[in-house]
Amino acid sequence: MTKVVDRKPLTFYERTYLPTLLEGLKVTARHFMRSVKGGNAALQLGDGYYPEVPWQVAEGYRGAPYLVRDQDGNTKCVSCQLCEFVCPPKAIRITPPGADGVPADRPNAEKMPREFEINMLRCIFCGLCQEVCPEEAIFLQKHYSLTGLTREEMIYDKERLLQLGGVHAGIQKWKHKLEEAREQDTFPVKTD
């Protein structure tokens, strides 16, 4: 059941736009006068504001995505390219290792990206890469103010991402699998 709400017809005086004009003038003038008279604390010049004192991000803030290493210092990313696929602005670019590429620096994980680039100019900090990552290798961290002088500079490569990302201690899936396999003496297990 739709309810039709009748608009109150405007009087002639109201239709001249004058009352709203005057009302607006009143409001803006009041604020202006208050600011000028010093009622505005922000007017006081000084420190304690953003550029001098960096903003402290809250817990759970989602800033720039970086790659992380595990507690053994190994690259967690296995180049599955799901983040590249899911990335809405196509900011992530992964070069897979290929058949002759370097194997993963973790035993048993078989591969890691040859190159991993995030174009921070494109990145929208949406967090889908973190969401989709099956290896918990990429995390949105607390950096929010990324600057650079050139576009090239804003494309973060693997080394830089890993360095910024730091260590994330978590379940070491591949290591666990390897240990499990080693306990079974039935098959020789390749460790490298």
Partner: peptide, 14 residues
């Protein structure tokens, strides 16, 4: 500056 004062802000001051 004027808009800042009207909106209780500071405006460019850096």
């Amino acid at each position: 500056k004027l808009s800042a004062l009207i909106q209780d802000r500071v405006g460019p001051n850096r």
